[in-house]
Computed example of a mutant assay.
Amino acid sequence: MDAAQGLPDGATSSAAGRDITADVIRAVAAMAKLAPREITGTTRFRQDLDFDSTNILELLMRLEAEFDIEFDPDTFGAGTFETVDGLSSYVRETLGG
Rank of each mutant, 00 (worst) to 15 (best):
E58F: 02
I56F: 07
L95V: 02
E38S: 04
N55D: 15
R44P: 06
P73W: 13
E82I: 08
D52A: 07
D50M: 14
G96K: 09
R18I: 05
V91I: 03
L34I: 04
F81G: 10
F71N: 00
T83C: 05
I25C: 02
F81L: 15
A4P: 11
P8G: 09
E38A: 07
D9L: 15
T54C: 05
A15Q: 12
L49M: 06
P8D: 10
Y90A: 10
V28K: 00
A15C: 15
L95F: 03
I56Y: 03
F76V: 15
D74Y: 08
E70C: 07
N55S: 15
A65H: 04
G10K: 10
D85I: 09
L87S: 02
A32M: 00
T75K: 14
A11N: 07
D48Q: 11
D72L: 03
A35T: 09
V24N: 03
A65W: 00
R46A: 13
T80S: 14
G17M: 00
G77D: 14
Q47L: 09
F45L: 05
G6A: 02
A30L: 10
A3F: 15
P8S: 09
F71E: 02
T40Q: 09
D50E: 14
M1I: 11
D74R: 13
L95I: 01
G96W: 07
V24A: 03
G10M: 11
T12S: 14
D85K: 11
F76T: 14
A32K: 00
A3Q: 14
V84S: 13
S14I: 04
A22Q: 04
T40L: 07
D52Q: 07
D9F: 15
S14Q: 10
A11E: 08
L95M: 05
A78C: 07
F71C: 00
I25H: 00
V28Q: 02
R62G: 08
A32Q: 00
F51Q: 04
E58T: 06
E82D: 13
T43E: 13
A65Y: 00
R18S: 08
T43I: 12
M61L: 10
A15G: 11
K33I: 01
A27K: 05
A15E: 13
L59K: 06
E64I: 01
G86A: 03
M1P: 09
S53R: 04
D85M: 10
E82V: 11
D74C: 08
T75C: 08
G96C: 09
F71W: 01
D85W: 12
T43Y: 13
K33H: 05
T54K: 08
A32E: 00
S89W: 10
S88D: 11
I20L: 08
V84L: 14
D23M: 12
D19M: 03
V84N: 14
R92V: 02
R37Q: 04
G97S: 14
R18T: 06
I69K: 03
L95H: 03
R92H: 10
A22K: 04
R62P: 10
V24R: 03
E66T: 06
P73S: 13
L34W: 02
V28N: 01
D9G: 14
D74G: 12
T83D: 06
F71R: 01
T83N: 06
M1R: 12
M31C: 07
G86R: 03
L57G: 04
G77H: 09
P8T: 06
A30C: 06
D74Q: 14
A32R: 01
E70W: 03
L7P: 01
A32F: 00
L60D: 01
F67P: 01
R62F: 08
S89K: 15
